[in-house]
């Protein structure tokens, strides 16, 4: 598997990261290095082994359905760059 600069630019766009064309070339090389290293893992035979979703062989904890949080609009809005009353205000996004 190998990434070309066009794929790198697409990934960057999906992640909303600005990448200069020259940078894309260099990043493609770096990312190919990482992918090549990970591809070595494909050589390990994992037939019949369940996928590992975490290092700890534990299941998720579940909590009771009670209201224990919220009611702090001033705190959640505290860091907002812009607000209108109790709403966050952001540059207009319309379909």
């Amino acid at each position: 598997m190998s990434l070309d600069p066009a794929t790198v630019r697409r990934i960057a766009r999906l992640a909303r990261i600005h990448v200069d064309p020259a940078e894309a070339e260099q990043l493609a090389g770096e990312m190919n290095g990482i992918l090549g290293w990970i591809e070595q893992l494909n050589e390990v035979d994992v037939d019949g082994i369940d996928p590992l979703t975490g290092a700890a062989q534990m299941a998720m904890r579940l909590r009771a359905d009670t209201v224990t949080d919220g009611g702090i609009p001033e705190l959640v809005l505290g860091n907002a760059p812009d607000r209108a009353g109790a709403f966050y205000a952001v540059p207009k996004v319309v379909e």
Binding site: V76, A84, F87, Y88, A89, V90, P91, K92, V93, V94
Partner: peptide, 14 residues
């Protein structure tokens, strides 16, 4: 998202 409250902004309620 509320898009009709302001000419250039969208309002967000989470």
């Amino acid at each position: 998202s509320l898009h009709d409250q302001h000419p250039t902004k969208s309002y967000i309620d989470l």
